[in-house]
């Protein structure tokens, strides 16, 4: 349709409220965050411009590098685990054997639960007192090796990665499954007739045919790791000794507990820039002519 003098009023009425809310509560704060990252606060009421000082402080802070390292480990591990498991289960469900709907339903349940509840459940699984983990290790004869994972600097991050995977892997299962469902059934059938089975089928047919969805899941999951706050906050609060502190929590602690607002905003800018960069770079890297 064309915009005419008669309907332009209505059109503006349709566009303006939503864009106003969006501009004021999403775009403007982002810009403000960039500006605020160049200020320092002497008190909550008075601030002054300090240029790139906050950025220098961040780059010079050992804690920052540790947190960045944690975030990268978290990002790579959760993505790898969830892509592998999501692909596997998404594929097995796609085979539509008897009872597949029940499995599909079950796998998705953890993703709808409040993360506070999920954090609580996993805290207790790991806990030495009443947890599931210790008796489980006892049962397989590894009981002597049990240490409470959440209080061990070496194990805490791994423990959270497992909880996070439990929490959100169902989404990947569904996404992969939908990708497989979209493969042309004629192509798959003719490949089957040509004798493609098992691995061959997956490598030469399924992966190329569903490459778009694989790409998307990897990007979503990687960027998603930059937003992971809840489980860490609930389960360990970033400890022990900052072993599980990720960027969002680092932002939270600096801005709202230490009142280092400038530093916090540098984190905000960094999270934003990383999210954008990763999306663009990964999309470029994984570009690949699809089969057809």
């Amino acid at each position: 349709m064309k915009v005419t003098k008669k309907n332009i009023g209505t059109i503006l009425l349709f566009l303006v409220p939503g864009f106003l809310v969006y501009a004021y509560l999403v775009l403007y704060p982002i810009l403000q965050s960039v500006v605020m990252s160049t200020y320092t606060w002497d008190t909550l009421a008075s601030s002054r411009f300090v240029g790139f000082n906050n950025y220098r402080a961040v780059l010079g802070s050992q804690m920052f590098w540790k947190v960045l390292g944690n975030t990268l480990i978290f990002m790579v591990s959760t993505t790898t685990l969830q892509v592998l498991i999501g692909f596997l289960l998404g594929y097995l469900i796609y085979l539509q054997l008897k009872g597949y709907r029940l499995y599909k339903t079950l796998y998705f349940i953890p993703t709808v639960l409040p993360s506070v509840a999920v954090g609580f459940i996993w805290n207790y699984i790991y806990s030495p007192g009443m947890g599931l983990l210790k008796p489980l290790m006892n049962a397989v004869g590894a009981g002597a090796h049990y240490i409470p994972p959440l209080s061990s600097p070496q194990l805490a991050l791994i423990a959270i990665i497992i909880a996070q995977t439990w929490n959100s892997c169902g989404i990947q299962v569904i996404l992969f499954n939908s990708g497989f469902m979209n493969m042309s059934s004629e192509v798959i059938e003719s490949a089957t007739l040509d004798g493609a089975t098992g691995w061959k089928m997956i490598r030469h047919m399924v992966i190329p045919l569903s490459w778009d969805i694989i790409k998307m899941v990897i990007i979503l999951q990687t960027v998603g790791a930059l937003r992971s706050f809840d489980l860490v906050y609930v389960m360990t609060g970033g400890g022990p000794n900052h072993a599980t502190e990720l960027l969002p929590l680092h932002l939270f602690v600096n801005a709202f507990q230490n009142f280092n607002i400038g530093y916090g905003n540098v984190m905000a800018v960094l999270i934003f820039v990383l999210a954008m960069t990763i999306t663009v770079v990964m999309r470029k890297l994984m570009e690949r002519e699809s089969l057809y």
Binding site: S33, M36, V223, L226, M267, A268, I271, F272, A275, M276
Partner: peptide
């Protein structure tokens, strides 16, 4: 805005 994590705007 789809790619903007809410964390990036939370302080302002």
């Amino acid at each position: 805005g789809m790619m903007i994590p809410i964390h990036s705007a939370i302080i302002p």
